[in-house]
Amino acid sequence: MEIFLDALLDALIDGVKMLPFLYLAYLLIEWLERHHGENIENALAGGGRWGFLPGALLGCVPQCGFSAVASNFYASRVITPGTLLAVFIATSDEAIPLLAAEPSQWTTLVLLIVCKIIFAIVGGVLLDFPLRKVLPHSLYGGYEGHADEVDCHEEHEETSSIFLAALRHTLEIFVFILLFSFLIGLIFESVGEDAITGILGGMGIFQPMLTALVGLVPNCAASVLLAQLYMEGAITFGSLFAGLTAGAGVGLAVLWRVNPSWKQNLFMTGLLWAVGAAAGMVLQLIF
């Protein structure tokens, strides 16, 4: 019972400290969605063969459902596979506001975004140029010089004020933060922090392969869990990057729903995991 209460108290204290920063982060996100969401989508759709450039930059914008929009664009042949990959790589889902809510992690946040943009551009270039000549057309898919009818399946909330919408998102993520902080704290208290970090650390350079699999889960809970594990010191920056690179929010789930080619969907899913794991391994050697 003492371990249970200690873990719960630590989770509450850490979560409450984050609340003001988390709310401000979601307030900014809501403002971007309300006032610039359509411009962002238009910039992505107008990129053509070079769409991976705006995709890499705009994918970093912590906008709810942006990866879902990219999936619909790809299925409608508005954007190339490289652009879709760039958006998926750049997307960090809830990790950005979560790291932004912790001032001690601001340096990590900047490094994460910079690395995301670099790897997203590189991945988009490789997929859209040299690999395009090698991959069969049925596997490649995407942009063909024209756009079919696009259904973004994205409805931005306009009925409530941005302050109430930001508060709702903050409280929703706050629940995830409390849950994962409590579970992680309970495990650390029961098993021992040294034992947990020893198990994960014992995986060495292969640790990013595991976190990349976690990142493929099409739910914001995966990015929250990865960010929490990183802030607890359980995983490295390379492993965090691997998981968040493979994690495209709900983008993968939407892709499998709207794109009729299971081969293309399977290829993009496997490629996303491979890029995340490889990038994480590289960063783990550097940092």
Rank of each mutant, 00 (worst) to 15 (best):
A120G: 10
A43D: 06
Y26S: 06
S67W: 01
I117V: 15
W31A: 14
H36N: 11
L135R: 07
F88P: 04
D148G: 14
F129G: 03
H137L: 05
A90L: 00
L135M: 13
V69N: 00
A120W: 03
I118Q: 05
G55L: 03
G82F: 01
N72R: 15
E149S: 11
G51S: 08
I121F: 10
P136D: 09
L84V: 09
G65K: 06
L139M: 14
N39I: 06
T108A: 10
A95L: 10
A120Y: 04
Y23D: 01
T80M: 06
S76Y: 04
A147Q: 07
L112Q: 07
F52P: 01
I118R: 00
F21Q: 08
G123Q: 07
E41T: 11
L99F: 15
A75H: 01
P20L: 13
T83H: 09
L109Q: 05
K133H: 15
L24Y: 03
G46C: 05
V134T: 04
L126C: 12
A120P: 06
W50H: 12
A147Y: 05
S138R: 13
G55T: 04
L131A: 12
G82C: 02
I29Y: 02
G48N: 12
F52R: 08
H137K: 13
F119M: 11
P81S: 00
I113S: 00
L127D: 07
L99Q: 08
G37W: 09
V125R: 00
Q63P: 00
N39K: 08
S92Y: 06
F66R: 02
H137R: 15
I121N: 03
S71D: 01
S76A: 15
K133Y: 14
H36L: 15
L24D: 04
W50P: 07
K116Q: 10
C115P: 00
L126K: 02
N72T: 10
F129W: 15
G59H: 00
A43K: 13
G145M: 10
A147E: 12
L28D: 04
F21N: 13
T107L: 12
T80V: 05
F66T: 02
V69H: 04
N42W: 11
R34H: 11
D148E: 15
A86G: 05
C60Q: 09
F119P: 02
K133M: 12
A100Y: 13
V125W: 14
I89A: 05
L44K: 02
N39Y: 06
L27W: 09
Q63G: 02
L22P: 01
P81A: 12
A120M: 06
G142C: 04
V110S: 03
N72L: 03
L58I: 04
D93P: 03
L58V: 02
S71K: 05
A75E: 03
L126H: 03
L32A: 14
I79D: 02
F21H: 14
